[in-house]
Protein backbone atom coordinates (compact mmCIF):
# COMPACT_ATOMS: atom_id res chain seq x y z
CA UNK A 1 0.00 0.00 0.00
CA UNK A 2 2.77 2.35 0.96
CA UNK A 3 4.50 1.70 -2.30
CA UNK A 4 1.41 2.75 -4.27
CA UNK A 5 0.97 5.86 -2.20
CA UNK A 6 4.55 6.78 -2.91
CA UNK A 7 4.01 6.15 -6.60
CA UNK A 8 0.92 8.37 -6.68
CA UNK A 9 2.76 11.07 -4.77
CA UNK A 10 5.73 10.96 -7.11
CA UNK A 11 3.55 11.10 -10.22
CA UNK A 12 1.61 14.04 -8.87
CA UNK A 13 4.73 15.91 -7.84
CA UNK A 14 6.37 15.34 -11.21
CA UNK A 15 3.21 16.58 -12.95
CA UNK A 16 3.22 19.65 -10.75
CA UNK A 17 6.82 20.51 -11.59
CA UNK A 18 6.11 19.95 -15.26
CA UNK A 19 3.24 22.41 -15.15
CA UNK A 20 5.43 24.99 -13.47
CA UNK A 21 8.22 24.58 -15.97
CA UNK A 22 8.22 27.19 -18.71
CA UNK A 23 8.39 25.74 -22.18
CA UNK A 24 11.82 26.54 -23.50
CA UNK A 25 11.75 28.88 -26.48
CA UNK A 26 14.39 31.00 -28.14
CA UNK A 27 13.55 34.00 -25.97
CA UNK A 28 17.15 35.09 -25.37
CA UNK A 29 17.91 35.02 -29.08
CA UNK A 30 14.85 37.20 -29.69
CA UNK A 31 15.62 39.68 -26.92
CA UNK A 32 19.16 40.07 -28.23
CA UNK A 33 17.75 40.82 -31.66
CA UNK A 34 19.76 38.06 -33.32
CA UNK A 35 16.61 36.62 -34.85
CA UNK A 36 16.73 39.56 -37.31
CA UNK A 37 20.02 38.21 -38.63
CA UNK A 38 18.32 34.91 -39.45
CA UNK A 39 15.38 36.65 -41.11
CA UNK A 40 17.70 38.93 -43.10
CA UNK A 41 19.73 35.98 -44.40
CA UNK A 42 16.65 34.00 -45.37
CA UNK A 43 15.10 37.03 -47.08
CA UNK A 44 18.29 37.58 -49.07
CA UNK A 45 18.32 33.95 -50.22
CA UNK A 46 14.66 34.24 -51.19
CA UNK A 47 15.31 37.48 -53.11
CA UNK A 48 18.24 35.89 -54.88
CA UNK A 49 16.31 32.82 -55.96
CA UNK A 50 13.22 34.80 -56.97
CA UNK A 51 15.38 37.26 -58.91
CA UNK A 52 16.99 34.38 -60.73
CA UNK A 53 13.58 32.92 -61.52
CA UNK A 54 12.43 36.32 -62.84
CA UNK A 55 15.51 36.51 -65.10
CA UNK A 56 14.75 33.03 -66.43
CA UNK A 57 11.17 34.14 -67.05
CA UNK A 58 12.42 37.11 -69.11
CA UNK A 59 14.76 34.92 -71.09
CA UNK A 60 11.98 32.51 -71.97
CA UNK A 61 9.77 35.44 -72.98
CA UNK A 62 12.48 36.68 -75.36
CA UNK A 63 12.84 33.19 -76.79
CA UNK A 64 9.10 32.97 -77.36
CA UNK A 65 9.15 36.33 -79.11
CA UNK A 66 11.93 35.25 -81.44
CA UNK A 67 10.11 32.04 -82.23
CA UNK A 68 6.84 33.82 -83.03
CA UNK A 69 8.74 36.19 -85.35
CA UNK A 70 10.26 33.24 -87.18
CA UNK A 71 6.82 31.75 -87.78
Amino acid sequence: MRKYLLLVFLTLSSLATQAQQEVEMADTMRSEGKIYVVVAILCLILFGLIGYLALLDRKVSKLEKRLSEKK
Binding site: E22, V23, M25, A26, V39, C43, I50, A54
Partner: peptide, 29 residues
Protein backbone atom coordinates in the same frame (compact mmCIF):
# COMPACT_ATOMS: atom_id res chain seq x y z
CA UNK B 1 0.14 36.48 -59.33
CA UNK B 2 3.91 36.10 -59.52
CA UNK B 3 4.32 39.35 -57.59
CA UNK B 4 1.67 38.19 -55.13
CA UNK B 5 3.59 34.95 -54.64
CA UNK B 6 6.81 36.84 -53.85
CA UNK B 7 5.03 39.21 -51.45
CA UNK B 8 3.38 36.31 -49.64
CA UNK B 9 6.69 34.46 -49.33
CA UNK B 10 8.46 37.54 -47.94
CA UNK B 11 5.59 37.88 -45.46
CA UNK B 12 5.94 34.20 -44.57
CA UNK B 13 9.64 34.58 -43.78
CA UNK B 14 9.27 37.76 -41.75
CA UNK B 15 6.05 36.94 -39.89
CA UNK B 16 6.95 33.27 -39.65
CA UNK B 17 10.07 33.97 -37.64
CA UNK B 18 9.08 37.11 -35.77
CA UNK B 19 5.46 36.59 -34.75
CA UNK B 20 4.46 34.76 -31.60
CA UNK B 21 3.71 31.03 -31.69
CA UNK B 22 2.14 28.82 -29.01
CA UNK B 23 4.64 27.52 -26.45
CA UNK B 24 4.38 23.76 -26.83
CA UNK B 25 6.53 21.10 -25.21
CA UNK B 26 8.79 18.92 -27.41
CA UNK B 27 8.27 20.98 -30.57
CA UNK B 28 9.30 24.32 -28.97
CA UNK B 29 10.38 26.78 -31.68
Amino acid sequence: WKILSVLLLIYTLIAGFLMAVPRLVIVNE
